[in-house]
């Protein structure tokens, strides 16, 4: 494997966004790119990352290799990379370590780290192709704000999506709160758009602790997409350049 990223920033942010949700995971490398799928310890949420080969310049991977990595350790190594550094990830065929090289853009500084790999026996789940009943795209910063505000009211949020908009409702001991985003197009700045497409109304409840955790990915993308169908996990997607993505799935809270 040899994969070179123009800016370490992307990889730093991706790892930062998932490291509190999952601790040990395999980065599955093959000729289509670097993928990762992992559940959190309590098996409530799942993270699915894809960094396509096109994200790297260049990308080369001759054989399928899983790189089992402790994300806490990876975070320590990535701290040494500045956001604008060129990052190269390298690995041998049957590796004990993954090699990370950071090169300063304008300087003659080259940092090189070897990170020990671990054997991780990870369950791989089949995520069914789903035609979601409702899809809502919104500014990622707005979603983060809504989740953190409502977490102060309750540990759960009910998300209701209709043609009129998407509503987040929390009911807690101190009272209730709700936020509605209406569909709108900002002609000056499409990053501000709220776009809703719906085949049938949905209403589902989720843990805000997990949703606020997903929002650590906010810096990766201006917009976030929520995909919902009744009685299936919510998908929260941060789309990245070159068809890469960071997706989180969250199992709903259901009636007792």
């Amino acid at each position: 494997l040899e994969a070179r990223l123009e800016a370490a920033d992307l990889f730093k942010k991706v790892v930062e966004a998932i490291k509190d949700l999952v601790q040990h995971c395999n980065f599955d490398c093959n000729d289509s790119g670097i993928a990762l799928q992992a559940m959190d310890n309590s098996h409530v949420a799942l993270v699915s990352m894809m960094l396509t080969a096109d994200t790297f310049t260049p990308f080369r991977c001759d054989r399928n290799i899983p790189l089992g990595i402790d994300l806490t350790s990876l975070t320590k190594v990535l701290r040494a990379a500045q956001s604008s550094d060129i990052l190269t990830i390298k690995s041998e065929d049957a590796p004990d370590v993954v090699n990370l090289v950071f090169e300063g853009k304008d300087q003659d500084r080259i940092s090189e780290y070897d990170l020990k790999l671990m054997d991780i026996d990870q369950e791989h789940l089949g995520i069914p192709d789903t035609e979601y009943a409702a899809t809502a795209s919104m500014p990622a910063a707005d979603f983060k704000r809504i989740c953190s505000d409502l977490l102060l009211i309750s540990e759960a949020v009910s998300i209701e999506c209709t043609k009129e908009g998407i509503t987040f409702k929390a009911e807690g001991d101190i009272g209730n709160g709700s936020v509605t985003l209406r569909q709108h197009s900002d002609l000056e700045n499409s990053d501000k758009n709220v776009d809703i497409s719906l085949t049938e109304p949905v209403a589902l409840s989720f843990s805000l602790k997990y949703l606020t955790g997903f929002c650590k990915a906010t810096g990766l993308s201006n917009q976030v997409r929520l995909c919902l169908s009744n009685d299936v996990p919510l998908m929260v997607e941060y789309a990245l350049a070159n068809n890469s993505y960071l997706r989180f799935y969250l199992a709903p809270k259901i009636g007792d």
Binding site: I127, Y249, A251, D256
Partner: peptide, 14 residues
């Protein structure tokens, strides 16, 4: 009253 469901009850092991 609601309870948290698990992700594995929706996504099968492959």
């Amino acid at each position: 009253k609601t309870k948290q469901s698990g992700i594995t009850s929706f996504f099968g092991k492959s």
